[in-house]
Design a binder for these strands. Structure first.
Lengths: 111, 111
DNA sequence: ACATTACGTAAGATATTCTTACATTTGTAA
DNA sequence: TTACAAATGTAAGAATATCTTACGTAATGT
């Protein structure tokens, strides 16, 4: 699989975000501790971007990492008979723990 | 800079999310088109994770990429054994139903 | 036009990742 | 416990990607 075939085009968003931030590739390279050609390669989609680099870019450009990833909010339907069965399983968990669990899961949940 | 020094520990979240999804490394590897040792290396922090891989993991585990990036505040003690136990129960529920279930319970929680 | 800054790219050196194989751990049934 | 199976960890050479420096072109401003 070539790099160009990758579905999510983070490179375009990185380039767009950089310009919105009013920064040059050289400035960004210095901030992130990269070489300038590396930034060029990234924005042209010839070089991958790691998780930590995404976070660094997001901070430098003041955008969310989620936006850089191209995450799309998806809605979903809530009517399914199997839910009630699953809910009965959940009911076995102690209320105190359930509260914590819900907070954990909701923080992980797709928006 | 070694890989372990990277501030955002996406590897730990990937491992946690996989277990919550009830998947083995082998299953995940097949879904994402990776070799199983690669998943192992990723979860141990010895291999980087690219932007597209983050999106793929997020979809497979049904968590947000933002959470995998560590953007969402982790206010919870995830090493609490009681929560791990509860999470194991939740892992038995089919991923498709999990999100629906969470919505149901969230709506019940508000009173 | 000239100077300066920004950006793209080439090429060899370096580093990472891939792939296969084997080892270790963990879970489970006899 | 022992034995077996499944899951995970890891080693090592091959394949690939990235780094680093250098040079070239395009854009911008004076």
């Amino acid at each position: 699989m070539t790099l160009k075939d990758q579905k999510s085009d983070i490179s375009a968003r990185l380039k767009e975000a950089r310009k919105l931030a009013g920064l040059s590739q050289g400035q960004v390279a210095k901030i992130l501790g990269l070489h300038r050609p590396t930034v060029s390669e990234i924005e042209s989609g010839r070089r991958r971007v790691s998780a930590d680099e995404i976070n660094s870019f997001a901070e430098a450009y003041e955008v969310s990492g989620a936006w850089l990833l191209g995450e799309i909010n998806e809605t979903l339907e809530t009517n399914d008979p199997r839910i009630q069965l699953a809910a009965r399983e959940l009911a076995k968990i102690k209320p105190d723990d359930l509260e914590k669990l819900l907070r954990l899961i909701s923080s992980m949940r797709d928006t």
